[in-house]
Amino acid sequence: MRIAPEILDSPDDVGRAAADQIATSIAASAEAGRTFVLGCPTGRSPLSTYEQLARIVAERDLDLSRVVIALMDEYVEQIDGGYRAVDPSLAHSCVGYGERDILRRLNAGARPEHRIPEQNLWYPDPLAEDGAYDRRLEEAGGIDIFLLASGASDGHIALNPVGAPADTVTRVVALGDDTRRDNLDTFPTLRSLEEAPRFGVTVGIATIRELSRSVIMVVTGEHKQPTVRRLAAADAYEPEWPATVLTQCRFPRFLVDRSAAALLQTTL
């Protein structure tokens, strides 16, 4: 299924549109007394959504006490016999990002009794067996809204590399050089490709497709123009551009800013 992008003026407008949908769904879940699971990427693309959502939390006095923040991935390093997550204090740690830029940011605008409990920040464990995180998410009722972002150079989604099969679940993967180069732009503290992580634990393509009730892909910035063109043209999952899983998801929404959509202007 081909997904037509909604073109908005700026990254803030993209963030506000995504945040408004998320906030409305959180409020409905709170009123029904049920858990709301928000699937969250890290990095630059979703940051405006988290910023705008924090503003809406304060504006609407949202109750976040039943919200679960489910992170997509984390960078890992090899150790004898397996892998371990990187130190969360590192700038490129996804768990550290989740604590600083999602959990604390959203809780800052909420009343104490309405804040997300710290234990409701979930993330995949590189020591767990493949698919264990998927089972936890499924037992929670699935992901109400999965916020998605696409890699600029190779279309990776979460840390799924080029060629990721459609049936993959949460697992440890080797990261391609294009993904690692993207990390140098996202995390200036990584000064060279040699310093960029080589492995990560990530939700799979099937995790995103099968466990989400709805998804919102956010793409902003001039450097994402090829990404928008590729996603707008896709009508099925393409392993060579994993973010095209968007075409297979239930209730997808594709939000882009005008700068990122520039290559589409002559055809839309």
Rank of each mutant, 00 (worst) to 15 (best):
A128C: 11
N107Y: 09
G151T: 06
E74Q: 08
Y83H: 15
V95C: 02
I143N: 01
V68D: 00
L121T: 08
E99V: 14
E139R: 15
S65N: 11
V67P: 00
M72Y: 02
I56P: 00
A132F: 06
L103M: 12
D134I: 08
L64E: 09
E129M: 08
N160M: 07
Y97I: 05
R104E: 14
L121Q: 13
R135V: 13
E139G: 12
A132T: 14
L148M: 15
L147W: 10
V95L: 15
R66L: 11
V67K: 09
W122M: 10
I69R: 09
H114R: 15
G109W: 10
P126Y: 11
E113V: 09
A91L: 11
A54T: 07
L148D: 01
Q78R: 15
I116R: 06
I69G: 02
D73G: 01
Y97T: 08
R100K: 15
E138W: 13
I157D: 02
Y83C: 11
L121V: 08
A132C: 06
G98V: 06
S65T: 05
L62E: 01
A149P: 02
A110K: 08
D61N: 15
D61V: 11
R55F: 12
A110H: 14
R105T: 14
I79M: 07
R135P: 00
I157F: 07
D63P: 00
D154Y: 02
D80M: 09
S93Y: 03
D101T: 04
A58P: 02
S89R: 14
E77T: 03
D61P: 04
R105Y: 07
R66E: 05
G142A: 10
E77N: 00
A110P: 05
R135I: 14
L121C: 12
R136Y: 05
A140C: 08
V67E: 00
I143D: 00
I79E: 08
E139K: 15
R115M: 10
L62V: 12
L106I: 10
Y83G: 03
L90T: 08
P117F: 13
A149F: 02
L64G: 01
L53P: 04
P88Y: 11
